[in-house]
Every structure is written in structure tokens, then in C-alpha cells.
């Protein structure tokens, strides 16, 4: 039974990797279109990043440097677990530094630092179909994409405006890729949507349970859906990061006590640490050396 423990480089067998690689190439050739693939059962549960893990396992090589984030942070439990998985099965170098990574697997965030040519951002996707909550049937939504019939999505967004005065979608905000396919960017806050537009990095999206792969090539137009009289806008924070003082970044709200005390800190932990290492300090931060 000891041979149970021997797995191929990066866990997946070569035939599975080839199948996923072919799907990735077609995904890149048809930006924003969801390529069905025969997703495998992975040694972690569905919903915990099996799509992203299968993409990473299929593209990663011994020279890659991998970064894994969840909610923007390198030290959240699922990020730690996935990073440890690849360090074990692919024996690759891992990093928390955005600029050192050749592959970044993410759940729910895009790093604050602008991604560069040669980097690949791999998104974990729970529900890849942007039209799913308007129409639960795959047979229907597939036809809508085929006919480029996205009226339903606009109706939904417009109903929000009629009801609330503004669009009530705050994350997983739908985008149109290269002027053709409406795509779900995974549950990133809409704050991150503009980072996808004309990015220099290749962006790959994997949904394991739903068995779909899709992609945005570098330098590709990614436009968040909106209306002339209600243009797309991102969340703004009325204060900087309490630790590093960064503005124009996405912040997590941290509850400090049971008396309503709270602070706002960078969701991107690497970005925050790097700034603090350079001497930036927020109102509750301490000058350098404080955090290990």
C-alpha cells in the first residue's frame, strides 16, 4: 500500500495535464468563453480551489515561483494549504512577494501591485457562469452566449438601479471581454475589476466543480457592464490602511473590541508588508521591525 504515496510531478497524470493544457489554449484563443473540461477529483474538496489547482498543476514547471493568496493574504489557511500542496507535489519555489512570482493562484482578490508580462494569474472560480443566477439551466445560458444575447444581464443590473438607485452588485461583477463574451471575474470585489483591463499578465480562470476553464490574454479589453447614466464605479474607502497608510487599496475591516472599535487594514498582506518595510506607517502601525 506504500505505493499509494507516489504521485506524478504536480499530482495530475500526464494525460489529464494534456487535456487541461488543450483547454487552456482554446480558452486563450476565445477570450472570456468558458471551455468545458473533464475536471478531475482532486485531493481537496470542491469549492476550495480545485479548478485553480488543476490549472496551476497543468502549467507549473520546476523553474516556476508560486504565490498563493486567499482574500489577498498569503497566510490564510486555504492559501497556506494550497501552497504547501504544490511545494510538496511539484517541489517548486514558493514566495509571498507578488513581484517574485511567475504564477499567482488567487481566491477573491487581484494583488495591488501591477502584474507584469510573464506573470500568470490563476483564479479559483466557484460559479463560472455570469448568467447562472438569472437562468439556472446550462442549456439556456449556453444558447445566450452563442447568440451574444445578454439583455437579461442588463435588465437585472437595471432593476437594481430602479430599486436602489445604484447597481447592487459589489463582487463577482460581470465584465465583457474583448467586446464579445460576458464573463464572471470570480468573486473579486468590483474594486479589482479595472485591474483586469489591458493587464500585461495572462489571466486564467478555473472552476473545478463546474468543469470550466476560461482566460483573458494580456492586453485585452475587459469592460465592467454599466449604463451611460449609471457608469461603473468601484468602492472607495474614506481612510488609509491603519498599518501602512496606503490609499487606493482594498481594505479589510478588523473588529478590535466589543465596543464598536474597528480598524481598516490592507487586504493584500504582501503589499502592506512591503510598504511597512520601506518605512510607511499608518495611524495604528509601528515603525518597522514590529511584524516579524
Amino acid at each position: 500500500m506504500s505505493d499509494l504515496a507516489t504521485y506524478n510531478f504536480a499530482y495530475l497524470d500526464e494525460q489529464t495535464k494534456r487535456m487541461i493544457r488543450r483547454a487552456i489554449l482554446k480558452a486563450i484563443a476565445i477570450p472570456g468563453y468558458q471551455v468545458p473540461f473533464a475536471s478531475r477529483e482532486m485531493p481537496m474538496p470542491y469549492g476550495w480551489g480545485t479548478g485553480g489547482v488543476q490549472i496551476t498543476a497543468s502549467i507549473i514547471g520546476p523553474d516556476d515561483v508560486l504565490k498563493v493568496i486567499d482574500q489577498g493574504a498569503d497566510d490564510t489557511t486555504n492559501a497556506v494549504s494550497i501552497r504547501a500542496f504544490f511545494a510538496k507535489v511539484a517541489n517548486v519555489a514558493v514566495t509571498t512577494h507578488t513581484h517574485d512570482a511567475s504564477i499567482i493562484q488567487t481566491r477573491h482578490r487581484i494583488p495591488e501591485k501591477t502584474l507584469l508580462e510573464g506573470q500568470v494569474l490563476v483564479y479559483q472560480v466557484p460559479i463560472p457562469e455570469p448568467l447562472r443566477f438569472l437562468e439556472p439551466r446550462e442549456t439556456e445560458t449556453r444558447t445566450m452566449h452563442a447568440l451574444e444575447e445578454y439583455g437579461l444581464m442588463h435588465v437585472k443590473l437595471y432593476e437594481d438601479i430602479a430599486l436602489n438607485g445604484h447597481i447592487a452588485t459589489t463582487y463577482a461583477y460581470p465584465v465583457k471581454v474583448a467586446g464579445r463574451y460576458v464573463m464572471d471575474p470570480s468573486p473579486i470585489p468590483k474594486f479589482d475589476n479595472p485591474k483586469m483591463h489591458l493587464s500585461e499578465a495572462l489571466q486564467l480562470f478555473g472552476a473545478g466543480r463546474e468543469k470550466r476553464i476560461y482566460a483573458i490574454p494580456p492586453h485585452t479589453a475587459v469592460v465592467s457592464l454599466d449604463f451611460e447614466d449609471h457608469p461603473f464605479e468601484v468602492q472607495t474607502f474614506d481612510r488609509p490602511c491603519a498599518l501602512c497608510g496606503a490609499e487606493d487599496v482594498y481594505l479589510d475591516e478588523v473588529i478590535l473590541d466589543d465596543k464598536g472599535g474597528r480598524m481598516f487594514v490592507c487586504s493584500d498582506t504582501d503589499h502592506c508588508e512591503e510598504r511597512r518595510a520601506c518605512g510607511c506607517v499608518g495611524e495604528l502601525g509601528v515603525k518597522q521591525e514590529a511584524a516579524e
Partner: peptide
């Protein structure tokens, strides 16, 4: 080295399709 060589060729191809 089938595992590493096919990965290397695929990565060239992935980057080539992306650019």
C-alpha cells in the same frame, strides 16, 4: 524527459497563444 519537456513546450505555446 516527457514530464518536464512537454511542460516546457506547452508553456512556450501558452505564452505564444497569449502573445
Amino acid at each position: 524527459q516527457p514530464v518536464y519537456d512537454s511542460q516546457a513546450v506547452f508553456r512556450l505555446m501558452m505564452d505564444g497563444m497569449a502573445r
